[in-house]
């Protein structure tokens, strides 16, 4: 049989190269995909309503930091109500703190400032602090993620 150079269609060598190469690439992608997904876990489920303590723990005019689902939350007690704000700065995720001197919430990382009602009033933060829902049930304070 003569060499198959002059036959029509795809040469056998090219066909095999593409078939083997393509199969190898497909295998590599199939192997890499689960790894890529494994490296970055999905968001965990929120525990829903979290009990943060008795109402007496938060006297009028004070700001406390509590943990809700491992996340810091500011409990702001004013004359008329108790509010909860995520203590995570909306700029770059630092943990903010209450300054009793200046009566405002401050982020030490990049100089962001929030008022006691969570509004971003100075510095780089683009949004107000996220507010969480507070309910008081028979003297016990419960916090649940907003929305």
């Amino acid at each position: 049989m003569p060499a198959n150079d002059d036959r029509k269609g795809v040469p056998r060598r090219d066909f095999l190269n593409v078939a083997v190469g393509g199969s190898a690439a497909a295998l590599a992608v199939a192997g890499a995909y689960p790894v890529v997904r494994y490296l970055a876990p999905p968001p965990g489920r929120s525990k829903g309503v979290v009990r943060v303590g008795e109402l007496e723990r938060f006297p009028v005019g004070t700001v406390h930091t509590v943990l809700v689902d491992e996340r810091p939350v500011l409990m702001v007690r004013t004359a008329d109500r108790l509010r909860a704000f995520s203590a995570i700065c909306t700029h770059l995720d630092c943990v903010v703190a209450y300054s009793a001197e200046r009566r405002q919430i401050e982020c030490p990382c990049h100089g962001g400032v929030y008022s006691l009602d969570g509004r971003n009033v100075a510095g780089p933060p683009p949004r107000p602090l996220e507010e969480l829902t507070v309910t008081v049930d028979e003297g016990v304070v419960l916090v649940s993620p907003a929305g």
Binding site: T65, V66, L67, E70, R71, P72, A87, L92, C94, V95, V96, A97, E106, C107, P108, C109, H110, G111, P124
Partner: peptide, 23 residues
């Protein structure tokens, strides 16, 4: 301590340019 506010201060030196610009 996840409750404490982030520490004041500076990141490692190789992040300083980014830190200064971000601020």
């Amino acid at each position: 301590d996840p409750r404490l506010s982030s520490a004041l201060g500076l990141p490692p030196w190789y992040f300083l340019p980014m830190h200064a610009i971000v601020r």
